Simulated assay, not measured.
Amino acid sequence: MGNCFSSKNKKPPRRLGSSHGQAIGSSSRYGGKGRSMRKEKVEEALIHEQALAALLLQQNGVAPFDRSSSLRYPGPGPKQTLPRSSSSRARSMTDPLLKPQQLVNQDLKIDDLETNHFLLVHGGGFGAWCWYKTITLLEEGGFKATAIDLTGSGIDSSDANSISSLSQYVKPLLDFLERLGDGEKVILVGHDFGGACISYAMEAFPQKVAKAVFVAAAMLTSGQSALDLFSQQAIPNDLMQQAQIFLYGNGNDRPPTAIDLDKSGLRDLLFNQSPAKDIALASVSIRPIPFPPVLEKLVLTPENYGSVRRFFVETQEDHAIPLDLQQSLIKANPPHKVFRLKGSDHSPFFSKPQALHRLLVEISKIQ
């Protein structure tokens, strides 16, 4: 969201947004490196296909993710030249494929954590589907993972043009937190505009949120809207402006009701380091973003929102929310700790799923 969210014909901004992914050494035996890489590719393909199959079953209404709590709520300058997706290049060894059990510290005792339950909140236009790799890795590591569809997102049947407030947009998230039992807590993870959504939830249910993780996300202060936040960009985000299409559900003579994204620009804007198969999934799954919630200013108090520890995850190769904008958000509203995902685009759940997983596990252990 740069300063693209203006009015009428100008296209508004969007988006918001570390881990210390270490390279794993190759075998010292002759030929070991080649065998290791082939094995990694086979294992990666297996994890991907199993998770994707579960996702497709979920979207078709057959069954949710195996052992997953995934929820669905049916109802109500010159043009920039940027590097293409790295999907055609060899896999980066900064995010090697490991078995999920290897990603968890062997000394970690899940039962000793304040909570082992992650509640994953997607960004604007995305849905619960975007977390399928994160859900798979967390559950295989012994954690509980819940991904929700906000109103008008994912497979929720609501029309984005009919959503008139942030409270309406985040209702599935608030409903889930309200149903948690006494003493039960979650670690909230918000991506992109999902940062504004988890901020709203932290203010409403601080006693049910153990920690909050902002992944390249809108980390608002009181009195700010997501539009205010993204309008801080000194240089307009040309990619964002080119990708955004305003929708006028109430007529062309009325304010815009939603923002759609031009599918031809998604790769460069959101997925410049992501695998081609995930870009294909996104291109058929992304939905319009309701506009009124983006304009809404939050009221956040020290007693509620301020009582929850916040962690920010920087995405270094982000074309939607550039690193300098992320760092300005951090400076304006300092979190408890900042992490960086090297080599990640705006969608680390696709481009750096292993590194993102390690980081989430690390955050869960912080006392």
Rank of each mutant, 00 (worst) to 15 (best):
N252E: 14
S36C: 03
E44H: 09
D238F: 05
F311M: 03
K11F: 02
H122S: 01
D318N: 12
R67V: 11
N9P: 09
S283T: 12
F350D: 13
Y248K: 15
V215M: 12
F143M: 01
S68A: 15
G249D: 04
G142A: 05
E43R: 11
S347M: 12
L239Q: 09
A280I: 07
P302M: 03
D278M: 13
A210Y: 02
L16G: 06
V308Q: 05
L300D: 04
D149L: 12
K211S: 00
I148M: 10
A210H: 07
S27R: 12
G61F: 13
T115W: 01
I148D: 13
A258D: 03
R84A: 14
P302C: 04
S162G: 08
F205H: 13
A147T: 00
S18W: 08
F246K: 15
R310V: 00
P255T: 04
A234E: 11
D66V: 15
Q58N: 14
L173K: 06
R84Q: 12
F205R: 12
T94P: 01
E303P: 01
L97N: 08
N250W: 03
E40L: 05
S307F: 00
R38K: 13
R15T: 10
I163F: 07
I245Y: 06
S274P: 12
P302Y: 04
T221M: 07
T134G: 03
N237W: 01
D318I: 02
F271H: 11
L56W: 15
F291A: 13
A218D: 05
I363A: 03
A201L: 10
